[in-house]
Design a protein around this nucleic acid. Structure first.
Lengths: 194, 194
DNA sequence: AATCTAACATACATGGCGTATGTCTTAGTG
DNA sequence: CACTAAGACATACGCCATGTATGTTAGATT
């Protein structure tokens, strides 16, 4: 049982890739499963066998994107020495990633609408978990006020994502992005111990 | 041409009301237009005549809810003397309203997913406009730092809405709500001039 | 009063999802 | 090395929902 699992993993990957493209372009609701499967020379049969239904495919796609986002954000954050600056950099990384149409459309818009609250997702939203860990650490090291960890994390990530939606919808994203980042920093400064 | 427009306004109201209920219960995608129209003794004919298509109906519903939200938030905010406290109260009001399933599902989840970014809606999102005006005023009166108005407003409202999503998804909303409010206040404190 | 407009209902066409069934390849077994 | 069992995927079908095209009737216009 080697050649079979190998091939199955390949078709799963193909379907997820096709779905990423289709969902990003047309949105989850308008994406046809016949279309996206045939683009990788498969049929809906493969899809239902591997993912159960259309929502299962969306969940798989969201999971993959979420993981990729968390990795990138962590890398960007780790590149900064200062702990507080590192925290801010993570948030800024989310804002910037949320500008990518694929992420915005699938993870930020369709994801919550069709899969429910991100914290309830199977992946548990790696991004959110990452932020929670970081906030906890900053509280432990006496940098942040003693706020509620989960609540603060949700507020911060929510602010970042919403800022990104605004930037992306604007006519001149390149011009407003720095403003969003600046406002984000200012807002977050309310969390630091004085 | 009086009795006709009168009756048409009535059917529009009936359809919007039915849609509010259907969208809130099943979500926009899963709501059947045959079902919701027949619940008020109409057919899809009335719907397409009045709203063009299913998205048109959603837009009308969102517009109505958004207006109601803005009014409520303003009332709550006006009840507070201190300008800064009043601003916070507005945000808190949004958090609390976002706990109402109807608002959460339709305005916060399905709205952005199917209609796009709220700032591009026909209603232009009264809630957002309200926050923008308030932020501008607080900057003018030298209470807030000189941040970018739009960016800050988006961040603040985004934080509030995301906090609400978290509260609503939690097992014990009554217990987490105060935490969310507290965290919101702390976060916003970063905006005040020191 | 006659006609015309428009609000709404009815009927039809299209397409998508989900499931049930079929087929073929691969892994295991004597 | 056949033979069988199972799983991965394709094919075929039914159902339902949206959107549109066509009717029908009530009310406005003259």
């Amino acid at each position: 049982m080697n050649k079979r699992t190998e091939k199955m993993a390949e078709t799963r990957a193909k379907l997820i890739q096709a779905a990423r493209q289709a969902f990003a372009e047309k949105g989850y609701a308008e994406a046809s499963m016949d279309d996206l499967t045939s683009k990788v020379n498969l049929t809906r049969g493969a899809l239902y066998h591997n993912f159960g239904n259309k929502l299962g495919l969306l969940a798989a796609v969201v999971d993959q994107l979420d993981s990729e986002m968390a990795i990138k954000a962590q890398m960007k954050a780790e590149a900064v020495e200062n702990e507080w600056e590192s925290f801010l950099m993570e948030g800024i990384a989310y804002i910037e990633m949320a500008l990518v149409p694929e992420i915005q459309r699938i993870v930020l818009l369709d994801g919550p609408a069709f899969l429910g609250d991100p914290s309830q997702w199977p992946s548990q939203s790696s991004c959110l978990q990452l932020t929670i860990a970081k906030v906890q650490h900053l509280i432990d090291t006496n940098i942040l006020k003693e706020v509620d960890v989960e609540a603060t994390s949700r507020l911060v990530s929510g602010a970042a994502l919403n800022a990104a939606l605004w930037v992306a919808a604007s006519a001149t994203p390149e011009e407003v992005l720095p403003k969003a980042i600046e406002a984000f920093k200012t807002l977050c400064s309310g969390l630091v111990k004085s």
